[in-house]
Design a protein around this nucleic acid. Sequence first.
DNA 1: CTGAAAGCGCTTACAG
DNA 2: CTGAAAGCGCTTACAG
Lengths: 355, 355
Amino acid sequence: MVEAGQTRKRKRRTQSAPTVADVARLAGVSPMTVSRVINRETAVMDATRDKVREAIRALDYVPNSAARSLAGGRQSRIALLHSNPSASYLSEFLVGTLQEAGASDAQLVVEHCAATESAEALAARLDAHRVDAVLLPPPLCDDPALLAVLQARGLPMVQIATGRAVDFAHAVTIDDERAAYAMTRHLIDRGHERIAFITGDTNQTVSSLRLEGYRRALREAGRALAPDLVVEGDFTYRSGLAAAETLLALALPPTAIFASNDDMAAAASAVAHRHGLDVPRQVTIVGYDDTPIATTVWPELTTIRQPIQDMARRGTQLLIAAIEAKRLGRAASVHHECLDFELVLRESDGDRPHD
Amino acid sequence: MVEAGQTRKRKRRTQSAPTVADVARLAGVSPMTVSRVINRETAVMDATRDKVREAIRALDYVPNSAARSLAGGRQSRIALLHSNPSASYLSEFLVGTLQEAGASDAQLVVEHCAATESAEALAARLDAHRVDAVLLPPPLCDDPALLAVLQARGLPMVQIATGRAVDFAHAVTIDDERAAYAMTRHLIDRGHERIAFITGDTNQTVSSLRLEGYRRALREAGRALAPDLVVEGDFTYRSGLAAAETLLALALPPTAIFASNDDMAAAASAVAHRHGLDVPRQVTIVGYDDTPIATTVWPELTTIRQPIQDMARRGTQLLIAAIEAKRLGRAASVHHECLDFELVLRESDGDRPHD
DNA sequence: CTGAAAGCGCTTACAG
DNA sequence: CTGAAAGCGCTTACAG
């Protein structure tokens, strides 16, 4: 029997998924043109492009990413470094990163950084994995030693949610100062006069931005800054417990407590309940981050939402572009982008109690 | 100037990472032999293998995974389906899956399943992504319609942490009945007589296994099963709040509360505090899962730890093996594996109060 | 605007 | 036990 078309030499499976060649044949063009259409190049006539698109649809064609990587000489590898124990942050972040990496045929390497590990040891691991660029979610985004080592290796990197963007790294952030300002402003608008603030970990750069936003809102409203209403926390539930105890033991306790994250706000809510206080009728408690605990506890927390997935996606895009630029020997322009936050009003904030 | 070695025709970058050809040249063998060593085949002389290994080390050679996938005709794509809002579970699971997928050059596709979406619509999305196999963490692992649709498509799948493993799917679980038994046994050993149980969502198959473990421990200890001490929950914090209120309002309240997950245990702890009860001196409260909330709340929860990352890794391995077997036309043998859990003793359990 | 040829780095199928 | 040849499915570099 004679095989239809040109004789296949020998070898390999035949019943595979459709290829560029199949699409090209059906569309009556060359594989080259199909490739052009797939890669959204401009230099293709509209009629040709339409024919190819129709063939792609008819065959339900999907490009083979391995072949694209090989031929294109790309095969980018992006490392996501994490030391943050906040699992909810990490999972949101991972989902965003995976989406973008998948769309761009980049490979994702997830590496955990122990606090005890030196930046050099970490960098050696990145070398072993042939990493091309690095994603730095908090708190790693603020680690000077790590940033320095990565810079020395010439690796493109992006700081996510940092309060101090450096000039040799990309950055994707929200405006923490403005977000904290907006939340404080909201509390002022609800009539609160004694508004307390629980700070975050002072080692993380966003902490001081959030405090600054709180201060500015008070200042602009013509309020005095009562030093006893600002209590130090470190982002843990336990520190929130202690901070709230301190605040509620005050001779003139606050009618509203703004915690720098949801864990501490949840702790403050627990303390308020323990003191027999109704939230939000007797005391308003608000958080920051909109992590799962914000909707887990009761009443659900009013908080600030960061677009974590979007930040991850955007950061990944910046890195892919940076890798590409580096390969082409183009100058690396550094991008600092600020995305929008959202004030999420739920059940834990109320008007100032009239007593 | 004449280039050293054979003349390069034209084209493409030169200063790339080392390839099999480089390794072969240095080791004085053919690329084929290098490939054999990399793929751990047997039919290579020890001396040859050693030479190749040394060359690999000397050049710091790492195989190009895109080329391997292309030439090998593999390029497995594994979908991780999730509808579970528990972010901490998902992130742990993702980390385990990514590790294994990375090691095996498999691609991971993460897809969220809305509750409103039909199983057919979902399957269509999997087709579009050219998915070869599916990872099903809870609660999706127990969705009969979904399982049926995937089976109809002949897709290998693995149920993670299911209480009802089906015969056409792989499964990786822990023994929930035995884990709940162990926890209850621990409470009995600490002298508790009135031990309450808050159940999980009755739609998830593990819920009844956990209840059964609690019951068996009581039965084997010769205790009567007080029906008022078993209260229904649905795994949410809010349901834990209600369940704990019910339990603590009992004429004869329990001295220990075993909640079917940590969220509900944390809620029970909050309710106990609201009632002015000290945990664990006046009431013991224990959870299940060892999610981040277990170490967030105070006192930290005694709980059962599932090896989520290991389960994810093992599930991914089973899938990769299944895809390979399917390609080779080999019969698909289904594996049901049970990994070890761990009873994690922390601060929320104590001896029965002497009153 | 379009195409024929060569090549990306590896593995499969044979042959010795 | 080892190797020369062909091919995986795509894109790059040219040429028209």
